[in-house]
Design a binder for these strands. Structure first.
Lengths: 309, 309
DNA sequence: TAAAAATACTCCATAGGTATTTTAT
DNA sequence: ATAAAATACCTATGGAGTATTTTTA
């Protein structure tokens, strides 16, 4: 059977055109080299060299085979290097799901850090709801999810990366827009815009609960799946809403955000991945994400300048 | 050192995802296979498989390396096959020189045969004079020459492939154009167009000698390097010429060819190549050429239908 | 508990070494 | 006469075999 050894020896002899020197270069004796080349020619079924006892020349077939062999050895090196990079998570592909609101807080920061540190990993992004992400994670359609807890699935790992306070979103024409902060009780008679409970039961229940502590049940006039939609509806004077503070990064005009007077409930964003995921890119991503979150202050996340991604 | 053996084993295991079955397929026992794969991973510096005692799966790096490895093995097969073809002269490149007149007799026939039998050999054709061909042959710029003997060079081999009779080329308005054959003596007072003696001394001397036997020295009014030019000059009524019979393949109007009454001198075309040429394509070419010439009658060479190459 | 991979060892095929011969320049 | 490849023969590394253990699904 033909082996890489034969090819390496062949390249050496073809480059030196001298068995003695080639053997020296290969740190071996000349006779076994001659023998291996002869064996190679045997396997190939054609002559590589014209040899007299005094001189060595490549045949035309040998010349072509030399070119091909060199390329082959180079490609092997390349394949090994690529494999190493993949194994270190420095190369590959990562499919990421995210809830729309994550696009306004953590996601840009983390992606920027990852892209600059590991440029050879291709990122594929899918905006989708939490439930959908859980499904896709289990099915292996995405590797990483940026979603809203809670998540019970034991096959997934979860790490909460942001807890951001909820604020009141008011139409800018609203009488309360002048206040510096707003007591929930003041909203008792307002129309509320809320997301469907299914989308984030914890946050939903928190809001309802707080209202009830303040002595009223909110009058929900409209539900909307997307945070963007909620904000738009507020801008359109349909009602008020309680939303994560990072939404002001959207720069939607016609809406004004005011902190709550009472201890604010928090909206959480978590990262999820399969517990048994072996992909190095995923672990690399998580590592860079943790680094980034540690080095980042709350202000950087919630109150970014416009135009930064 | 990493060897093809490792790659072959790897492909087998990756395809079976089962060391036992892969070993069976490779006609070997399972333990050494496990060992070789382990060794391969060692060399590579990354894991190819996630293995438990119960199941085997490719890592992402392994998946990529599998693709690359398959391609590598395919390319090696291809390189070997190409080398074999070159060694059999079924593939490669051949640079051929030819005197212009050869284009009107043997060359088309031989090229057609060669192209159809050995299509993977690229042919490069250069129209050039005999002397020039000899020079280029020695310098390795051409591999085969179609030229006019004699050639003394001992480093070249020569084979005469055509001996064609010379005929008289007359303007069609010439008084002798009605004759069925022409005695040289009848041309004693004609103006002659000849090629320079240097171009083909033997043929030149033959013509001059014959004229002198017929009792006159030809009056040479014009010399021309190219046979085409000579024929054109004849057509233009500048004079008469003695040319190889195959020139009538040119289909030049205004010229008429008549055989000589006396035993005609012959113009020879030979094929030349370097005696020490080791190229299989060259030998392949010579073989096909000899076959072709054996199967071909004189008429086919000298009196071809128009439009055949 | 049974199937499959890993471990432990043994053996021999062959890659590679040494000594020598052959041959072309 | 000499450099260089080939030949002959020997050595020992490591690839492959057999028997056994370990592990997890």
């Amino acid at each position: 059977m033909i082996e890489l050894r034969h090819l390496r020896y062949f390249v050496a002899v073809a480059e030196e055109l001298h068995f003695g020197r080639a053997a020296e270069r290969l740190h071996m004796a000349q006779p076994p080299l001659s023998q291996q080349i002869r064996q190679l020619e045997e396997y190939l079924g054609f002559q590589l060299f014209y040899r007299t006892k005094r001189s060595v020349r490549l045949t035309e077939a040998g010349q072509q085979f030399l070119d091909d062999t060199r390329q082959l050895l180079r490609q092997l090196e390349q394949a090994i290097e690529t494999g190493r990079q993949i194994s270190r998570g420095e190369r590959g592909q990562l499919v990421i799901g995210f809830v729309s609101s994550a696009a306004y807080n953590v996601l840009p920061l983390i992606l920027r850090a990852f892209r600059s540190q590991v440029p050879a990993v291709r990122l594929e992004l899918h905006e989708m709801a939490t439930n959908e992400q859980l499904q896709w994670l289990r099915e292996g359609k995405i590797d990483i999810g940026f979603l809203r807890p809670p998540v019970e699935d034991k096959t997934l790992h979860l790490q909460i990366i942001v807890r951001e306070p909820m604020v009141v979103a008011l139409p800018e024409t609203h009488p309360l827009a002048a206040e510096s902060q707003i007591a929930l009780a003041a909203l008792a008679n307002e129309s509320f815009i809320l997301f469907p409970r299914l989308l984030s039961p914890r946050a939903y229940d928190q809001i309802i609960g707080l209202c009830q502590q303040a002595g009223f049940s909110p009058k929900v006039v409209q539900e909307a799946m997307q945070m963007q939609t909620i904000v738009s509806l507020v801008a359109g004077n349909i009602g008020v809403a309680i939303v994560p503070v990072s939404l002001q990064n959207m720069q939607r005009t016609g809406v004004i955000y005011k902190p709550l007077a009472e201890p604010a409930p928090c909206a959480e964003v978590a990262v999820a991945w399969r517990s048994n995921d072996t992909s190095a890119s995923v672990h690399q991503f998580l590592t860079i994400m943790r680094q980034t979150m540690q080095q980042t202050t709350v202000e950087e996340i919630f109150l970014r300048e416009p135009g930064s991604e």
